[in-house]
Structure formats: C-alpha cells, structure tokens
C-alpha cells in the first residue's frame, strides 16, 4: 500500500471505530409545510462532537440527497431554501467552526497551517474525517435515494467523494486553499517548507480520484465572475444529475 493510501485508510479505520451516535433535534423555525429541519450533533474521530444542519422534504421519499462540505471560514450557513425544497440536504461543520467549536475554536487566519509539519497532526486530517462522517450520515439516511446523492463544496467535496464513492455527482466551487496563510508560515519559518509541502501532497485533489461526473470550477467549468450566472449554471448541472428541477437563487421569494 502506498503511503498515501495508508494514510487515508487509517483515517477510515479510526472513523469506523468511532460510532457517530447522531442526535437529531427538530427546529420549528427552519421547518415549513415543504420540509423539516433538524440540528444534528454527531461524533467524529478524536472524541470530538461535530454539528450539521439537516433538512428533509416532507412527503413520501426517497428524495435525492445533497451534502454541503464546509467552507474555509468560521461560519457555514444553513442549507439554502431552494435546496431544502428539492433535497435531503446536510450541511456539515468541521471541528473548530461555529457550532462545532467546543472545545476547539479554529483561528482565521491560522487554521490552514495548523499542525502542517506532520501529516499525523495536520488539522485537515481530522477535518476530512468530519466531512466523511457527514457523508456517511447523509448516505445512510432513510429518506435518501442512494442512487441520487450529490456533494458540493471546495476541494473537500472532491476528497469526500473520492473516499466515499457512493455519490453520483460532485460540484467543486473552489480550490483547497487559504490565500496567504502558507506564505505567512513560510516567511516566519522557511525551513518548514519541505514538511508542509509533503503534508499538503496527501490532500492534493489531483490524487483523489472520482469516477462520477464532476463539475469543477477552474477545471473545465470556467467561472465568469458573474456570480449569479455561475451559480445558476452550477445549480442546473447538479439538479440535472440528481433528477430535480433547477432553481436560481434570485428567483426564490
């Protein structure tokens, strides 16, 4: 087994040994005649409780599913109304982000290089585990049609789809990066560069193969900077793959 495969297999084994023990709490404020919302707390590796926003359409399922992997930043929004109308949608926070920030609160800037000198301690090892835990939770949800589940986010979505090959479409909206943060580290500690690069290579999206349709910004899907138009195009692509109608955000009132 390659070092790459060994690294990620160990993450899978750790997750398998850490029962998720999800607790779903209904949230009336985010529920309507069309969908029911839940706050979800569940366990991940390292004895850490993470959080996610779940929304399930009302009526007879199964429904297509959509996983939103977390953005780079402290706050993730709850799933958008248009997605709650169409999907069982789960937005997972990784450790350190708001609502999953006890006992660890991520710093911005700073998170991107935390523990980067060693692949075993790099914070993104556990962050990917948190995304995979979110993926397992959604993929196994009884209201989800297992043949129609998408994942959306930055390169974490790609890594998630690669490690849990039960998704049928992947939309990648941004690279795995935090502009300037690696530069900040290397300016202070130039000698740290080889180890940091070696750690990051394990997260290189090019090495995380996915054999289902992928729409990836900057890699065949060129963003126009007209963000409403770009979002509408990406939404239509994903909706087409998952068998639901496209909805432009600006059209939802």
């Amino acid at each position: 087994m390659s070092g790459f495969e060994e690294y990620w297999t160990a993450v899978d084994a750790e997750l398998a040994a850490a029962p998720a023990r999800p607790v779903l709490t209904p949230v009336p404020a985010r529920s309507t005649d069309a969908f029911t919302a839940y706050d979800v707390h569940l366990s991940s590796v390292g004895g850490y409780r993470i959080f996610g926003f779940l929304s399930v359409p009302r009526g007879d399922g199964p429904f297509p599913g959509l996983l939103d992997t977390p953005r780079y930043g402290s706050v993730n929004l709850a799933p958008h109304y248009r997605d709650r109308l169409r999907y069982v949608v789960f937005a997972v926070m990784h450790r350190g982000q708001r609502l999953a920030d006890s006992p660890f609160q991520a710093a911005y800037p700073g998170l991107f290089t935390m523990g980067i000198d060693d692949p075993a301690t790099y914070v993104y090892r556990a962050i990917v585990a948190d995304c995979l835990r979110g993926a397992e939770f959604l993929l196994d949800h009884p209201a989800v049609d297992p043949a129609r589940v998408g994942v959306r986010g930055d390169d974490l979505a790609l890594v998630t789809a690669s490690r849990r090959p039960r998704f049928s479409a992947v939309y990648v909206n941004a690279p795995f990066d935090a502009p300037g943060e690696l530069d900040d580290l290397l300016r202070a500690e130039p000698a740290a560069e080889p180890a940091a690069r070696a750690t990051l290579s394990l997260f290189d999206p090019g090495l995380h193969a996915v054999d289902v349709p992928v729409l990836r910004a900057g890699h065949g899907f060129e963003l126009t900077h007209e963000d409403a138009a770009d979002d509408t195009a990406a939404d239509a692509w994903l909706a087409g793959k998952l068998g639901v109608a496209p909805i432009a955000k600006f059209a939802v009132t």
Partner: peptide, 15 residues
Amino acid sequence: TRSYPYEEINEYLRV
C-alpha cells in the same frame, strides 16, 4: 429573498 442572513427574520417570525 429566502437567503441568509435575512431569512433569519422569516425563521424568527415563523415561531
């Protein structure tokens, strides 16, 4: 709109 943050107001008023 149905987008956040304004959607927080709609959610507040729902309950």
